[in-house]
């Protein structure tokens, strides 16, 4: 099955401030008691979106101005902690198609790219400017252009960073590697039988 070539992502943004937002925060462990990923979208950031009496909090994801957002902006080391793919899965199922942050924890980054969610890195000062645009004019359409490595919001352009291999796999529609991996069955067998352990 050919995958979609992801050359850009456009949509409204939402700003979730903070560094070191871990995957336990993105999706608390108790919602991982499931045998499929279906329905995880509603538990995204659950413990910061609801208070102990189950009332909605002031969290940005509860703000109706950002209810249509599909691009999340956050701080440094986004997605650290647990390797749970439940985290990018819940982002995706809640409608998020890209994440902009200072940088990303490695396992999260790999998991997200595998699902076709570009994760792009911006400098602090540019994140601040972008956050200001999102907060002051929530309707602004933000475009993440993977070809030009640019984020465009109104008249402002920011150059972002993303690991080249990841960018290419998104651009070429190869972000899910399974078909390519499967096609190398013979080479795999060769290496497997060369190992000193079985």
């Amino acid at each position: 099955m050919a995958l979609e070539k992801i050359t850009s992502v456009s949509g409204q943004g939402v700003y979730v401030p903070g560094d070191d937002i871990d995957t336990d925060r993105i999706i608390p462990a108790r919602f991982m008691k499931c045998v499929t990923f279906d329905g995880l979208g509603k538990y995204l950031f659950y413990d910061v979106r609801y208070d102990s009496d189950n009332n909605l909090t002031q969290h940005a994801l509860n703000d109706p101005r950002f209810s249509k957002a599909s691009i999340m902006l956050s701080g440094m080391n986004f997605g650290c902690g647990s390797s749970r793919e439940h985290a990018p899965q819940s982002l995706h199922r809640a409608g998020y198609r890209a994440v902009i942050a200072g940088n990303f924890a490695e396992i999260f980054f790999g998991n997200a790219i595998n699902l076709g969610i570009p994760c792009v890195a911006l400098q602090q000062s540019e994140r601040n400017s972008l956050a200001e645009i999102i907060e002051s004019t929530p309707d602004t359409e933000i475009k993440i252009d993977l070809v030009q490595r640019e984020i465009i919001a109104n008249d402002t352009r920011f150059t972002f960073e993303i690991r080249e291999g990841a960018r290419e796999s998104l651009l070429n529609g190869k972000w899910d590697p399974i078909d390519e991996l499967l096609s190398k069955a013979e080479d795999i067998q060769k290496v497997a039988s060369s190992l000193s352990y079985s």
């Binding site: 990018p88 396992i107 899910d176």
Partner: peptide
């Protein structure tokens, strides 16, 4: 992640 668990099981 889980998609990679799939990759490992399959390949």
């Amino acid at each position: 992640g889980t998609s990679q668990v799939r990759d490992l099981l399959a390949t």
